[in-house]
């Protein structure tokens, strides 16, 4: 037990949490915007995977991490456009289109990597690049805090800054409020002159952008290779974080960090003979339990409100 506590209260562990959370926070924010816009994005997983793969391949062949990032973002945006076109223009069901895109991404990335390197498992034969890490002046010299806060990958800082920006966008800008209005009630939004289709495309494109950043962090952040299906369900965990976080940017951030912490813990506890599967199960159990709790509380509130209303009318 002592060793478990030692692990949890070490600076390395906290720093690991920040790193592991990054590819959850970014897609979760993307999932949040899409969810609030009324276009639940099941394809986060596929978008991350595609971006992770494209980033590695392009950076390996051009030897520029920025071109890799650009390629990843572009491909994820193309997927967002396909998702939008099939759902918004052809009226196909968005869940099924999302599933199709995930299958496509999983197959196509392995196919392309195999084609280029002859290896199905990973891109390790290629020399790809990483996104830079950032040392924050002054803070990096503070003993424990510096170890945690400084020297992280650029995208980790982007993830936290993005949370604030997404909040600003959704609650303080016109297009953001329109996106939420469209998700809340498309007919009402349309009746006051909001272009529902355009707002939903916007939500999906932003969602794709954030998912791509998460994917890039996976393959060009801590490690520098692409592995088949390396997202390993992170897109879906991100989706769960949106629900666990009560569909609010800050809540989503906290939920994603909680998931990241469980993930980091399972990595650390692997050395301590505590079954990693049980630790990895925690975030999912928490999500299911909180989904139930949230629904029950909401139901109680509604019932209480109704009772009050009836009493008042008597």
């Amino acid at each position: 037990m002592e060793s478990v506590l030692q692990v949890i209260f070490s600076a390395v562990f906290v720093s690991t949490i920040l790193r592991v959370s990054t590819p959850l926070i970014l897609p979760a924010l993307g999932g949040l915007i899409a969810e609030l816009g009324g276009v639940p994005n099941i394809a986060l997983e596929g978008m991350m995977l595609t971006a992770a793969c494209a980033g590695v391949l392009v950076s390996a062949y051009t030897q520029s991490e920025w071109l890799g990032l650009l390629a990843g973002v572009l491909l994820a945006e193309i997927m967002a456009l396909i998702l939008g076109f099939f759902h918004l223009n052809l009226k196909a069901d968005i869940i099924l289109v999302g599933l199709a895109l995930n299958i496509l991404a999983s197959g196509a990335t392995i196919f392309v990597v195999y084609l280029l390197t002859g290896d199905k498992g990973s891109s390790s034969k290629l020399v790809s690049l990483q996104m830079p890490t950032v040392d924050i002046p002054f803070i990096k010299d503070i003993p424990v805090l510096g170890e945690i806060l400084s020297g992280q990958n650029l995208l980790t800082y982007v993830a936290f800054i993005a949370t604030g920006l997404v909040w600003l966008f959704l609650y303080r800008t016109r297009p953001g409020i329109h996106v939420r209005a469209v998700g809340e009630n498309p007919d009402a939004a349309r009746s006051v002159g909001i272009n529902v289709t355009a707002m939903r495309y916007l939500a999906l494109l932003m969602s794709g952008f954030l998912a791509a950043l998460g994917g890039i962090h996976l393959s060009m952040g801590y490690v520098k290779f692409f592995q088949r299906d390396m997202t390993a369900g992170r897109g879906f965990i991100a989706l769960a974080a949106v629900y666990l976080g009560a569909k609010h940017p800050v809540g989503t951030l906290i939920a994603a960090v909680v998931f990241g912490a469980a993930d980091a813990l399972s990595i650390q506890l692997g050395n301590l003979k505590i079954p990693s599967q049980l630790v990895q199960m925690i975030p999912y159990v928490v999500t299911v339990a909180s989904l139930i709790l949230y629904a029950v509380v909401r139901k109680r509130q509604a019932a209480a409100r109704q009772r009050k209303f009836q009493q008042a009318s008597l």
Partner: peptide, 15 residues
Amino acid sequence: EIVQVIQAVIILLIT
């Protein structure tokens, strides 16, 4: 994995 690509196209066309 080309089969997965075919599979995805089938879903898209059917939806």
